[in-house]
């Protein structure tokens, strides 16, 4: 895939506060990239710099090989789906979608054809004359997507576009967005704080925190091999422990040595250890690597969420077998379930 966008050491300062602390990021053609992070991590700021609505304090942004910091938003081949859609309430659906084409003074027939094609793509045929103010959130969302895509941009920016929708509609739109991206074959850059959304749709996830990139990788990389405690904690529920590498393939936490599959650390390196709740099994006490007492059990639909208290900490376990509260149990996991990460700041 060809490289399309590159952020080089982008810094943004607002009233003395560093919102972005030197972002380096490469985005390719036809890639579905998600900027994932908690609110205030700088993800929307990065998106707005790319859209041209604000400019960075330092650093460069390249688009198709050209530095675009001084290119105004209306000259960028980038379109945006805004968080609250920002539809034009004084226009109907057709005029909203045709807005960009009308500005470019395309002829009426071309506009009509393109708008009709877009309405079909987002499933809003027959809604041409409906005022946008009379549409539901999900429908407005579709209009916003059509209004951006009809301009045939090279990149579509989406700023938490599903935030205002209910759970069921959000799931539907996730699939639909992925489908639309594959159909039109352009780069999507998607901003969200919802890790599940990011895992579902993305080719690449960029995890951000405090104005810094924490990890860049595929959803499976990010989930299975988090690079640090923040990523592990943010992506899915985790049991995170502090420990040290005793030797190659041996890690010590909770005053016990466990076999693992990581090597190459210097001896006695302090590390963070992740155990995913679904990787832990509840077994009879004598078969467990760790012992503990069941504190609580919640039915979550597909699995039970069970909290087991050991002398050192509480473990969260996702399992399909229930366990009685107060019962002493053993916890079992395999060496490959232990994920070792360098401690943040090392």
């Amino acid at each position: 895939m060809r490289q399309l966008i590159e952020f080089k050491n982008v810094v943004k300062e607002f009233n003395g506060v560093l919102v972005l602390k030197g972002i380096n990021l490469v985005i390719h053609e036809n890639e579905f990239v998600t900027l994932l992070g908690p609110s205030g991590c700088g993800k929307t700021t990065l998106l707005r710099i790319l859209g041209g609505f604000i400019s960075q304090s330092e650093g460069e942004v390249f688009f198709d090989g050209i530095e675009i910091s001084n290119v105004p938003p209306y000259k960028r081949e980038i379109n945006t789906v805004f968080q609250r859609y920002a539809l034009f309430p004084h226009m109907n659906v057709y005029d909203n979608i045709a807005f960009g084409l009308n500005i470019k003074k395309q002829d009426k027939n071309t506009i009509k054809q393109k708008v009709t094609r877009m309405l079909k793509l987002v499933g809003l045929e027959g809604y041409e004359n409906r005022p946008v103010t009379l549409m539901s959130g999900g429908q407005q969302q579709r209009v916003a997507i059509a209004r951006a895509l009809v301009n045939e941009p090279m990149v579509l920016l989406l700023d938490e576009p599903l935030g205002a929708l209910d759970l069921k509609l959000r799931k539907e739109m996730q699939h639909e967005l992925k489908k639309i991206q594959q159909e039109v074959g352009i780069t999507f850059i998607y901003v969200t704080h919802d890790q599940e959304e990011a895992l579902t749709m993305s080719d690449t996830i960029v995890v951000m925190n405090n104005g810094e990139v924490q990890q860049i990788g595929t959803p499976t990389d990010i989930y299975n091999e988090p690079e640090n405690r923040f990523v592990a904690d943010f992506i899915g529920e985790s049991n995170i422990m502090e420990g040290v590498m005793v030797d190659d393939y041996r890690v010590r936490f909770d005053e016990t040595d466990f076999e693992c599959i990581d090597s190459g650390y210097t001896e006695m390196t302090p590390v963070d250890i992740v155990l995913r709740p679904e990787d832990i099994d509840i077994v009879p006490v004598e078969m467990g690597k760790i012992k503990g007492i069941v504190q609580s059990s919640l039915f979550k639909g597909v699995h039970f969420e069970i909290v087991v208290e050991s002398p050192y900490r509480e473990y969260i376990i996702h399992t399909t077998d229930n366990a009685a509260i107060g019962q002493e149990v053993g916890l079992h996991f395999f060496p490959e379930d232990i994920h070792i990460m360098y401690k943040m700041g090392y």
Binding site: F82, F99, G100
Partner: peptide
Amino acid sequence: LDPDIAEAAMDLGATPAQALWKV
């Protein structure tokens, strides 16, 4: 007004003057 509305117009190719007049 939606705080993003002028930006939305410019995002779609409108110059600041066009965003003012048309939106």
